[in-house]
Simulated scan of single mutants.
Amino acid sequence: MFVFDCELIIGNFKLKTFNSVKITTSRKTLGDTAVIKIGDAGRKQKLRNSIKVGDKVILKMGYKGYPIQTEFEGYVSEVSPNVPFEIHCLDEIFKMRRDVVKTPEGKLGMSWKKTTLLDVLKYILQGYETDLFNVPDVELAPFVIEAKVNRAQVLKKIKEEYGFDVYFRGNKLICALGYTEVIEEQPIFHLQKNVIKTDLIYRKKEDSKIKLKAVSILQDNTRVEVEVGDPDGEIRTWHTETPIKDKEKLKLLAEAQIESYKYEGYTGKIKTFGIPYATHSMSAKILDDTYPERAGIYFIEQVETSVSVTEGFKRDIIFGKKAGR
């Protein structure tokens, strides 16, 4: 029998129990979040009077007899006097939201006639102990940061307009094409052994319906867009690595690219226990004794990790595209 174990640090407090926790991590969102609920009346009052927005939060969880894993690292973003007492947390994006972008002379905003993605990221991260990883060699010409825009809003602009995955791993900022972060750990989910509930559909390649929106950002920051595939299919977006001005060429490339989104395999989600550890952008192996030929490796899109007295330590894992067999 698994016995839950944890270590929660909030500011100057170190706790071993709480009512419940919910952590959400996704490659589609800019920041990971956590909601911690504490119900003990005496401790709740002490925390309410002492915890403040901006306090550092580190949450480690696991089972007794197994190594505990850092599940969330960030800051208190909101304290809610509900019953039970709620502490809302956000990862490093919390700090990015607090500072607007300024020039070295103190002027709000910034603009470049010609620059690179790496230089923009280095500029907005000045003063932060943050490492950059996987940044593509992309030219931006021009690139404008409006007055009173904070650092998180710049990261959001890069994510939404250029299609890169942008997220933090601890204090490391990942800005990259989707699924290119190298994570050595690969969890294995066996549908008959360590999976509580499955909501998976196995589909043939010919049954996959995809509508692909292809986007190319030119050097002057204008966009060229085309759509290919099934009109009623799942909508996916693909950004080219290099500028492509010719729409017909972009369409041909998109029609070739769409094949990578069509595969024979699983789509959907599963519910598991707290081990093995899983987070977004990992690749995970799915095994099935009933249909062993369906074994495959899939990228993880999102993980919602929850702990409560009634439900225990669980994960809801949503899978993305197939990574291999």
Rank of each mutant, 00 (worst) to 15 (best):
I9N: 15
I9G: 05
I9P: 00
I9S: 14
I10W: 07
I10F: 07
G11N: 07
G11C: 08
G11V: 07
N12V: 07
F13G: 12
L15W: 04
L15S: 02
K16S: 13
K16C: 11
K16I: 11
K16T: 15
T17R: 08
F18E: 01
N19R: 12
S20V: 10
S20Y: 03
V21A: 13
K22Q: 15
K22W: 02
I23Q: 00
T24S: 07
T24Y: 04
T24K: 13
T25C: 08
S26M: 04
R27L: 08
K28F: 08
K28R: 14
T29C: 04
L30Q: 03
L30F: 02
L30W: 02
G31D: 02
G31M: 10
G31F: 12
G31Y: 03
D32R: 01
D32W: 00
T33N: 05
A34L: 11
A34Q: 01
A34C: 12
V35D: 03
V35G: 02
K37D: 07
I38V: 15
G39W: 00
G39T: 01
G39C: 06
D40H: 11
D40E: 12
A41I: 11
G42R: 06
G42F: 04
G42A: 14
R43C: 13
R43Y: 10
R43D: 12
K44A: 14
K44H: 04
Q45R: 10
Q45N: 15
K46H: 05
K46A: 09
K46W: 06
L47T: 07
L47S: 03
L47K: 08
L47E: 09
L47W: 06
N49Y: 10
N49G: 15
N49Q: 14
S50D: 14
S50F: 07
S50W: 09
S50L: 08
I51L: 13
I51P: 06
V53T: 15
V53R: 14
G54A: 05
G54K: 10
D55H: 15
D55F: 12
D55V: 10
K56M: 11
K56W: 12
V57G: 01
L59N: 02
L59Q: 01
L59Y: 09
L59K: 00
L59A: 12
L59E: 02
K60T: 05
K60R: 12
M61H: 02
G62C: 06
Y63E: 02
Y63K: 02
K64R: 10
K64W: 06
K64A: 11
Y66V: 05
P67H: 08
P67M: 06
I68Y: 04
I68N: 00
Q69R: 11
T70I: 11
E71H: 15
E71D: 07
E71P: 02
E71G: 02
F72Y: 06
F72R: 00
E73V: 12
E73F: 04
E73Y: 05
E73C: 08
G74Y: 10
G74I: 02
V76K: 03
V76A: 05
S77D: 11
S77H: 09
E78M: 12
E78T: 10
V79Q: 03
V79M: 06
V79A: 08
S80E: 15
N82F: 14
V83P: 00
F85W: 09
E86M: 10
I87W: 11
H88C: 14
C89L: 08
C89P: 04
C89E: 00
C89Y: 01
L90M: 11
L90C: 13
L90P: 04
D91S: 12
D91K: 05
E92S: 11
I93E: 03
I93G: 00
F94Q: 03
F94D: 04
F94E: 05
